[in-house]
């Protein structure tokens, strides 16, 4: 299969006060289309940072990020915004739903951002119907107009997954999606991701520190001290 997303020689350091804290020391990684990759490592190993760099939430100090063979880390801001809106879908450990918006409005958000006000208003019904459909798909059909603070952790993460899917992305980037959930709802979220990966042939990259969760991916990448330590094919 073709390589969809690639990082080569990526380095990144953060400034903390006066000190420069290196996080990634030259990471090379290739992800194929439709692949479900788990990135594991101890906290501080740079796995979240790698995910952010791949998803254009941040820019590498050196090295490049490529999408379909094209370099994307140095694109102008507008195009990067556009890629985040259309090509990538993000899922965070703490769900990060906007507290002022209901579940369905949160799911409609990618389209609200994408479209101009007038176009959006014209297509509102269709967008809402699609958002409702997605929430039903993740099992939240009965929670459409609930605000995030009226949802449980598992429900919020499902809503966040629906939002990540709403923009019709090709690549889903998940940062500890089960990190804040109990094992039962964590497992059901993971199954949902797994199913989505299969039925929509979504490329999926998931950061976790939990070995047992990582086991369910197609491939496990282990990061240690800012370098890729080993590649392993999960025994699915």
């Amino acid at each position: 299969m073709a390589i969809q997303l690639a990082a080569s020689g990526v380095e990144k350091a953060y400034r903390k006060g006066r000190n420069e804290v290196p996080v990634l020391h030259g990471v090379d990684l290739q992800v194929e289309r439709g692949e479900f990759v788990a990135v594991v490592g101890q906290s501080g190993s740079g796995k979240s940072t790698l995910l952010h760099l791949l998803g254009l939430l941040d820019t590498p100090d050196t090295g490049i990020v490529q999408l379909e063979g094209e370099r994307i880390d140095n694109l102008p801001e507008r195009r990067r915004d556009n890629l985040r809106n259309r090509t990538f879908g993000f899922i965070f450990q703490f769900y990060h739903l906007l507290p002022e918006l209901s579940a369905v409005e949160n799911v409609m958000l990618p389209h609200m951002i994408r479209l101009k006000a007038f176009t959006y208003l014209k297509q509102r019904k269709a967008i809402r119907a699609r958002a409702t459909e997605l929430l039903e798909r993740v099992g939240l059909g009965h929670r459409l107009t609930h605000k995030p603070n009226e949802l449980s952790g598992g429900e919020m993460q499902r809503a966040a997954i629906a939002r990540a899917l709403a923009g019709g992305p090709e690549i889903l980037l998940a940062d500890e999606p089960t990190g804040n959930l109990d094992s039962a709802s964590g497992q059901s979220v993971l199954e949902l991701l797994r199913d989505l990966n299969r039925e929509r042939s979504l490329t999926m990259m998931m950061v976790t520190h939990d070995q047992s969760i990582a086991q369910q991916a197609d491939r496990i990448v282990r990061l240690a001290e800012g370098r890729i330590e080993e590649w392993a094919t999960a025994n699915v």
């Binding site: 939430l57 915004d81 985040r84 259309r86 965070f92 906007l98 958000l109 951002i113 994408r114 923009g167």
Partner: peptide
């Protein structure tokens, strides 16, 4: 701050 991050992750521009 976090909501701003989410909006940007979803593709919102700085101008937005």
């Amino acid at each position: 701050t976090r909501d701003i991050g989410v909006l940007k992750a979803l593709g919102a521009s700085s101008a937005g």
